[in-house]
Nucleic acid binder design. Structure first.
Lengths: 212, 212
DNA sequence: TAATGTGAAGCCTTTCACAGCA
DNA sequence: TGCTGTGAAAGGCTTCACATTA
């Protein structure tokens, strides 16, 4: 109920604030005002205050916010205070890059398993993780993994999606847009690199070409 | 002027429609209605019509849209009808994955150069591309490259950004959020994988924990 | 004084309903 | 009849101004 009134956009901005707070904290700022954080991140100060106000008042009038305390508060709101176990499916170039992506750990994520359907890859290690056979994905249920990361090609996305749901995954970060979710009670966040790149030329003003 | 009235959100959805049109076209549909495309993509049919109406009427009442024609129209709107040359900076795991990412070509993108600051990588080849020294980035100006892709670590992002601007790049796709744009006339689209993952737990309802 | 938190205004996007056309 | 295109209504987010508090 209460959550329905909180804009998704506000939730989306919280991780950004978290990043700014970390930097400013490392620079030795014990307290910071919304103005200072806003300037640092290149956003508006009233936006920060408004976003935070959806979750409660964390600041002190006249002083600002305690850097460390606010970081803890935001991490708690985003449920990042506990470690989240994740599984990755599709150990191609992108999947490998994600497995090695630094910074997940700091946010409280721990990729504990990786799957692929290529017999040549199964059994190999990437970092600490051994690549398992994707047909054993069902067995995941016992391992209490909440988050799935999909880095398979488009034509395998729907099947992977269905399998992850069946395995009891609660949230999915997908790099493939090629699936339909149905009425599953699963939160899916999609990163579509090609689509993001595809809208870039629209904003580019070309002076050379005057007529097409 | 005219463009100011068109919501960014609508532009953002055009590539999605493009993808749907391609699939349906390959399935042999010569004409499709907004309803059919909407159902295929899992969006609303009036949203599609509204979005397209910002750019003009492309359909025929009673029949729908000519699949191939609409694809061409959208590609033209997004300026994807011409080939765009791109440069990638930062050939780490993620950078390599992006270099090998399939599907850019189909959208009219051609990554023609890659840069890194690691002497061990400079001179090596990834696919058709030889990795060049990032200190030669300035020389890019002669090559008429419009688009830059940033896949460097956070602490090198600002410098890379500045160099790309200096080299005359018009649009940037960045995988690092760690830079400030200033008042440059450059369109920047940021993909922050860690931040997207960071907001996933917020939406996950955990039944196990009843009290924190 | 300095900065937070918030009700309300303003603005933009989404949704709707239907006129108009093939 | 069936579907498009669009003006208008509805809804939601952003911005603002200021009361409030340390």
């Amino acid at each position: 109920m209460k959550r329905k009134k909180i804009p998704d956009e506000a939730v989306q901005r919280l991780p950004i604030y978290l990043r700014g707070l970390l930097s400013l904290s490392q620079q030795g700022h014990k307290n910071i005002s919304s103005k200072r954080l806003a300037d640092f991140l290149g956003v508006n100060h009233w936006q920060i205050r408004k976003d935070l106000s959806y979750f409660g008042g964390f600041g002190t009038p006249g002083i600002g916010y305690n850097t460390e305390k606010l970081r803890r508060q935001i991490r708690k709101i985003l449920k990042l205070s506990v470690v989240h176990k994740a599984v990755l499916v599709g150990v191609g170039y992108l999947g490998s890059a994600v497995l090695k992506y630094p910074g997940f750990g700091m946010l409280g994520f721990n990729i504990v398993a990786a799957f692929d359907n290529d017999p040549k890859k199964i059994g190999r290690r990437v970092g600490n993780i051994m690549i398992e056979d994707v047909s054993n994905l069902q067995a995941l249920q016992q391992r209490e993994i909440e988050i799935g990361i999909i880095t398979v090609p488009c034509d395998a996305a729907q099947e992977t999606f269905n399998k992850l749901i069946a395995a009891g995954i609660k949230g999915i970060l997908s790099f493939s847009p090629c699936y339909k979710t149905g009425r599953q009670k699963v939160k899916v966040i999609t990163i579509d690199i090609a689509m993001d790149l595809a809208r870039l030329p629209y904003y580019i003003t070309t002076r050379r070409i005057t007529k097409v």
